[in-house]
């Protein structure tokens, strides 16, 4: 997993609530067996018209948001399907962090596993960031995971909370399967007293 310490990048606003993972990456692109190359499918049905042409009205298609690495969006982002492809698409498109008033549980877990940071800010703070990103050309934010703070160069700053273990894993880019395997003895001991309740292989 990629480490995340301090990131400074351009902001793209997408101020809608309840953006589900079907919008983030539509189902027709879930048949690939690879983990890479999903960026071109990000928000596909919103970014492109029926003929596959880019819709100039969609925020991520504005030239000013080109190269954005921080997405600012509405509450309950990532709801619906558990598809990790949604995170792979955001990551591959260049997003390192998503800022929203709330996230769906599975999506947020999937982000952590891919070194993408989800940051919860208040509705008011998110609205402020959306306004700034819409008004200022080349609007940038700095996300500091060491200090748990988001700030811009125009006086905005806000602290955010992140689970300490998640923060530790992100800061160090740790493979959490490796961490679990450090508990091998405990897992084996658990299995010794908890045999499979059924013979799943008949």
């Amino acid at each position: 997993m990629k480490a995340f310490k301090v990131h400074k990048g351009k902001v793209a606003p997408l101020h809608r609530a309840n953006i589900d993972t079907d919008q983030i990456v539509p189902k027709q692109f879930l048949k690939r067996i690879e983990r890479t190359g999903f960026g071109e499918f990000l928000f596909y049905d919103w970014r492109r018209d029926q003929n596959g042409q880019l819709d100039p009205g969609f925020p991520l298609n504005h030239s000013r948001h080109k190269g954005a690495s921080i997405l600012v969006t509405g509450k309950n982002f990532g709801c619906g399907s558990s598809r990790e492809h949604a995170v792979w698409a955001l990551d591959d498109f260049g997003f390192r962090a998503v800022i929203a008033p709330s996230f769906a549980d599975i999506f947020a877990n999937n982000c952590v596993k891919n070194g993408v940071l989800t940051i919860v800010l208040s509705e008011a703070e998110v609205a402020q960031l959306v306004e700034r990103a819409t008004k200022h050309e080349d609007y940038q934010l700095t996300i500091d995971l060491q200090d748990c703070e988001v700030r811009d160069e125009h006086g905005f700053s806000a602290g955010f909370q992140v689970d300490e273990f998640t923060r530790h894993c992100l800061l160090n880019g740790l493979d959490d399967i490796g961490l679990t395997l450090q508990h091998e003895r405990e897992i084996t001991a658990y299995e010794a007293v908890h045999p499979a309740p059924v013979r799943l292989v008949s």
């Binding site: 983990r35 558990s82 598809r83 990790e84 995170v87 549980d105 599975i106 877990n109 999937n110 596993k113 891919n114 689970d163 273990f165 959490d176 399967i177 961490l179 679990t180 395997l181 508990h183 897992i187 299995e191």
Partner: peptide, 22 residues
């Protein structure tokens, strides 16, 4: 509960998942 592909790999490899208690 539903999980993502990284967690699928985690369970395949370890039969366990690190989970915050909901």
């Amino acid at each position: 509960f539903g999980i993502g592909t990284s967690e699928v790999e985690h369970v395949l490899a370890t039969q366990c998942l690190p989970q915050r208690k909901p």
